[in-house]
Design a protein around this nucleic acid. Structure first.
Lengths: 206, 206
DNA sequence: CATCTTATTGATCATGTGATCAATAACCCA
DNA sequence: TGGGTTATTGATCACATGATCAATAAGATG
């Protein structure tokens, strides 16, 4: 019962094993949140001894931080790959909002919530959070600038608009994580705020 | 070194002791976040044996949830006591935003971040979070309705506007918790979004 | 002042955490 | 096929967590 009987794991190259463990840590975090990323948690899921996990990371704080980065950087790629299929800047912004507010992303949202909480006690994680937030902001700035160049948007300060856009999204998603009341149409203000902020006609985004 | 030499604590009535421990738990949480609210953490700060803390709460999950409620309900009272000094609805809304976006509230913001994270693994805490969020929403709805009654605001759906207002605030504050880049003017969109949403002239709030 | 109620404590348990290291065995290469 | 390199493991620390309970002593009551 206690020990999930486990054969000796296959002998992999350090690179392979390292990649395997990162992928496993990713799964663990998406299922149980960042607090589930423990030596024993990752090891048992990977079918490996806890000591092996410890062997491949300098510390658990570092593993948690790396796991956060893996998950959230992948998320950026996935989201923007989806968004990029839209032909116009306005369409891309609309798709971006819709994707970020979509249900079924609670696992990633929960990881972000864990990160904002745990980042206060894990310096490596806090640094990772800052890096990924900057990546997100830069990606949103690109969307805004594209729209401005195409003449569809008007933005005084694209950098600031991007930060505040992400703030709105993250706040609404944090709320929905624990409290679903009123969450159905919770994105309406996001659409309207962005239309207003970018000089779009009402209803242009949704 | 290990045991901070402690005399036997004064013998208090259950009500007094209970109140003392809640106040202590509050201080502990505001200093180290909700994860710092442990049997030993609260006990040592209160100058009391860990067993006594356990004696007064059915479980630690319950103590954490109660501590969250104490802190955040007090915060509602404090914020709205301040806001109520403004004579007009527009002034009250402006003061509300300014207060909520003010620095120096990181301790409470951190408690909220902890709650959104830990609420997924602590049912009592999740329930407390929902309750306090509802209280916040109701209080904001009052401000919006006041403005509508006074003819200063126009709101189709005050309930929804209140939720989305709180979403904006919480998102921006979560960001500022770990990432201060661009945080200085991070509230600008909040002001503009509310002006737009409530039919106020540009610049009416800030 | 003696007695009794009960708030408080110390000791202890079971559990979970990260970390370390000698011992092991899987795999590669000669 | 044998030997050597090293990925992997089991065992074990030290520590922190929540929880329980008999023993203690503070303070009220007579």
């Amino acid at each position: 019962m206690s020990t999930p009987d486990r054969r000796r794991a296959a002998r992999l190259s350090p690179d392979e094993r390292s990649a395997t463990l990162r992928a496993t840590a990713r799964e663990v975090a998406l299922e149980g949140g960042l607090p589930a990323v423990t030596l024993r948690g990752v090891a048992s899921r990977a079918g490996v001894a806890p000591a092996l996990v410890a062997h491949y990371e300098p510390s658990m704080d570092a593993l948690v931080a790396r796991t956060f980065s893996v998950i959230t950087l992948d998320e950026i790629d996935e989201v923007f790959a989806l968004v990029a299929t839209e032909p116009s800047p306005t369409g891309r912004l609309r798709a971006l909002i819709a994707t970020l507010l979509d249900d079924g992303r609670d696992d990633v949202t929960a990881v972000w919530a864990d990160a904002w909480s745990m980042g206060r006690r894990n310096a490596a994680l806090a640094e990772a959070v800052r890096e990924v937030m900057d990546r997100w902001q830069a990606a949103v700035v690109d969307v805004v600038r594209d729209g401005c160049d195409a003449g569809e948007f008007t933005a005084e300060d694209a950098e600031l608009v991007a930060w505040q856009f992400l703030g709105m999204i993250d706040g609404v998603n944090s709320h929905a994580l624990v409290h679903y009341g009123g969450a159905r149409d919770r994105g309406r203000l996001v659409y309207r705020a962005m239309e207003n902020e970018l000089g779009l006609p009402t209803g242009a985004l949704g």
